[in-house]
Each structure stands twice: as structure tokens, then as C-alpha cells.
């Protein structure tokens, strides 16, 4: 019963946030500042770590996968492996995990602290809408960060793949791009972008929602973060399953 009501509450909050995205009042100088700062902390500040992870992960995955498909004589499936698995599945998954670990936790804690410190009351007193000023810019930033970082991850892994496939299969640049292009599907790319945006929406919206559930007690902050992060993890799994259903059924 409690779980259902919590789920309904989260969905209602999500609907409110989603509608606010299309509200003109959301877009003002203050919200823009919040968006820029949030985007900076979520995407730009993490970039060196993210690029390193993408390069290391890309080399490992490509090396192992290419060796396996070579041994099995499935070299025709190189393009499908890269586009169908690495780009559309692995890239968003690794990205969302990194962002959830870093930014979702931070957002959850930040909102909970603001609630405990009554800073949210300050905003309300000055008639600053929490959705417009505090939530939507963060959520938009999360959505955009997911799309951008997934694209960066995919580009890095595909670039590493070019080197690895050259070493293992002796594939040239043209042949490699042709292989990728043959396997690329616009529908898959669109699903990927929508999936990334959905990931971004929920991994920022859920921590905000759980941050708001904190009480005036300091001890409510860790509880709020804990519950928020577990729910974020469940949301990631659900979105992953749903996107797979859309793509393959």
C-alpha cells in the first residue's frame, strides 16, 4: 500500500516536472544559471574521468569482444556488435551508472540539506517556484548530460574500436566505417536518444523527490539519500528493460 502510494507520488511529481519543462516561466536568468552550474558539475567537471573510463572500458570491451567474434568466425557481426551492443546498450548504461553515482547522490543530498536548513522556505518566501528554479534546470541538465556523455562515450569507444579492429582484423578506416554504417539504424539511434533523455530525467527527478522527503532533522538526510539512490537504481533497470522491449519486440 505504502509502496503504491510512494510510486504514485513519484509519478505525479514526475508529471508535474515534465509539464514545467514546457512552461515559459521556467526559462529565466536564474534558472539558466542553475542549469549552467548543474551541467558544469554533471558533465564538464567529470569529463577527464569519464574520457579515461570510456577509453579503458572501450579497449577492454572491444579487445575481448573482437577476439571472441574472430575465434567464432562471426566477423560479419562486428558492426552489429558495435552499434547494437556497445553504442546502444553499453554506452548509456555505463554513463547512467557514473552519473547516478556522482550527480544523483549529490542532488539528493543537496535538496535534503536545503530542506533541513529551511532554504526551500526562503525560495518560497521570495515567490521563487521550486519547480521552475530548482528542479527543472537540474532535470534538464541531467537529460542533456546523459545524451552528451553517452555520445562522447560512444565516439570514444568507436574510435578505440577502429584501432582494435585494425590490430585484430586488419580492418581499414573505410571498411570499418562501412561496417558501422551498415549496422547503424536511425530508429536505434532515436531510441537511444530517447532512452538517454529518460535516464537523465529519472536519475535527477527521483533524487530531488526523495530530497524533498527529508524532515527538519539532520539524520533524515542519509535516509533520504539511501532511499533515493535505491529507487534510482530500480528506475535504471526498469528503463533498460523497457527500452529493450521497444527495440527488440
Amino acid at each position: 500500500m505504502r509502496t503504491t502510494s510512494s510510486l504514485l507520488g513519484t509519478l505525479a511529481f514526475a508529471a508535474g516536472v515534465f509539464l514545467s519543462i514546457f512552461d515559459r516561466r521556467t526559462y529565466n536568468s536564474a534558472s539558466r544559471t542553475v542549469f549552467i552550474h548543474q551541467f558544469y558539475f554533471t558533465s564538464v567537471q567529470i569529463l577527464p574521468l569519464f574520457l579515461s573510463v570510456a577509453a579503458v572500458f572501450g579497449s577492454l570491451i572491444n579487445g575481448m569482444a573482437f577476439q571472441v567474434i574472430k575465434n567464432l568466425g562471426l566477423t560479419d557481426y562486428l558492426g552489429r556488435l558495435l552499434m547494437g551492443f556497445v553504442v546502444t546498450e553499453l554506452a548509456p548504461f555505463v554513463t547512467v551508472l557514473l552519473l547516478a553515482l556522482r550527480s544523483s547522490a549529490a542532488i539528493n543530498a543537496e535538496i535534503a540539506v536545503m530542506k533541513v536548513n529551511r532554504e526551500l522556505d526562503t525560495l518560497e518566501h521570495f515567490r521563487i517556484d521550486l519547480l521552475h528554479y530548482l528542479f527543472v534546470p537540474r532535470i534538464l541538465s541531467g537529460m542533456l548530460s546523459m545524451i552528451f556523455l553517452t555520445s562522447v562515450f560512444a565516439l570514444v569507444v568507436l574510435s578505440v574500436g577502429l584501432i582494435v579492429s585494425g590490430l585484430i582484423f586488419g580492418t581499414g578506416v573505410d571498411a570499418y566505417f562501412d561496417t558501422l554504417l551498415n549496422a547503424a539504424d536511425i530508429f536505434d539511434i532515436i531510441v537511444l536518444l530517447i532512452k538517454c533523455a529518460t535516464f537523465g530525467f529519472f536519475i535527477t527527478m527521483i533524487p530531488i523527490g526523495f530530497g524533498l522527503r527529508a524532515t527538519r532533522e539532520l539524520t533524515s538526510i542519509p535516509v533520504s539519500v539511501l532511499n533515493g539512490m535505491v529507487t534510482v537504481f530500480l528506475a535504471i533497470i526498469i528503463i533498460e528493460v523497457l527500452s529493450s522491449i521497444i527495440r527488440f519486440i
Partner: peptide, 19 residues
């Protein structure tokens, strides 16, 4: 911060759109 964010958004947007 604004400059870095702008630069990142511009470069990645161009890469995504070009791809």
C-alpha cells in the same frame, strides 16, 4: 564555467549532429 559549458555543448552538439 559558462565558457566551458558553452564550449562542451557546442563541440558535442556538432559531433552528434554530424554523426
Amino acid at each position: 564555467i559558462e565558457f566551458k559549458v558553452g564550449l562542451f555543448i557546442t563541440i558535442v552538439t556538432i559531433l552528434i549532429l554530424a554523426s
